[in-house]
């Protein structure tokens, strides 16, 4: 009897340690970035585990830097525009793919899935030419255009999955009421798709916000950059020393909104990820 109890306690402790390990593994790096962001000067070079004093000078210097704030605006603009474009094209396509049985449907789905697998670098030179031709080089609009390559396929993919789950009778009721496919989509389905659209939009937003390769290649000057590029290229006073304090403050600034979004919408995100099994 005693041994059984001991075994139970051991199992419980083991589980608790496992949980603590998982939490430490997932949360610690971000936590440590926050700790670092509140340090300045030589304090930075002493390893500490806690925030001893809230020193906002790193934040002040990052925000005081006009180009970083500009990058945030660029990122916001690019991400929102990308989401809106992906939604606009994705919703109509998802209706066709999810609700209409037609020949060539699975071929279209294959194309969509195929494009989502494209290595970005494989279209880099071709896209560069297109962007040059459209005179969009070093312009955030170039990013809106190019981000569609990865946001549109997975938007179509996830929205199609959700569109399929809507009851068939609802559409038939609309048909009997005399609604055209366009009316059915806009008056009946889209109002019911808000949760799915929020999920998909959030995933597209995060993907666009985090994108690096295109942003690095298609922009040139500080004032046109997005946040990831700005952080990657952030340099300090001297060429050889990275301004770690500023870097961590900038990292925290751009990540906190995402983390908050994720915590608030975690259920939606999980359902979206599993619905499409797409890359995050």
């Amino acid at each position: 009897m005693n041994r059984k109890l001991l075994k139970k306690i051991a199992a419980k402790t083991g589980f608790a340690i496992l949980l603590a390990g998982i939490l430490l593994f997932t949360v610690f790096p971000f936590y440590y970035a926050i700790v670092t962001s509140f340090k300045s000067g030589s304090e930075l070079f002493d390893v500490t585990w806690w925030v001893s004093a809230f020193d906002f000078s790193n934040y002040a210097s990052v925000i005081g830097d006009g180009s970083f704030v500009g990058s945030i605006w660029n990122s916001v603009l690019v991400s929102f525009a990308t989401v809106i474009i992906a939604m606009a094209f994705g919703l109509t396509a998802a209706y066709a793919l999810g609700r209409v049985q037609f020949r060539g449907r699975s071929a279209v789905l294959m194309i969509v899935l195929g494009v989502s697998m494209f290595p970005q670098v494989a279209v880099l030179s071709g896209l560069f030419e297109v962007i040059r031709a459209l005179d969009l080089y070093n312009n955030p609009l170039a990013l809106i255009f190019s981000y569609t390559i990865f946001t549109l396929p997975f938007t179509v993919w996830i929205l199609t999955t959700f569109m399929r789950q809507l009851p068939k009778e609802l559409e038939e009721a609309a048909i009997v009421d005399g609604a055209s496919p366009m009316t059915t989509l806009f008056k009946v389905f889209i109002p019911l798709m808000w949760p799915a659209m929020a999920t998909t939009g959030l995933l597209a937003f995060i993907a666009a916000w985090n994108e690096f390769l295109f942003a690095l290649t298609f922009t040139l000057t500080d004032d046109q950059r997005t946040v990831p590029v700005a952080i990657a290229l952030l340099t300090g006073g001297s060429q050889y020393e990275l301004p770690w304090g500023n870097l961590m403050a900038a990292s925290v600034i751009v990540t906190v909104p995402l983390v908050l979004l994720v915590l608030i919408f975690q259920r939606r995100i999980v359902s979206g990820l599993t619905a499409g099994a797409v890359k995050g």
Binding site: F30, I206, N210, P228, M248, L258, V259, V262, V270
Partner: peptide, 14 residues
């Protein structure tokens, strides 16, 4: 989910 949401660039820097 936090690591998933952190931009790759940021996680590389962190």
């Amino acid at each position: 989910l936090i690591p998933w949401a952190v931009p790759t660039i940021v996680s590389a820097k962190m």
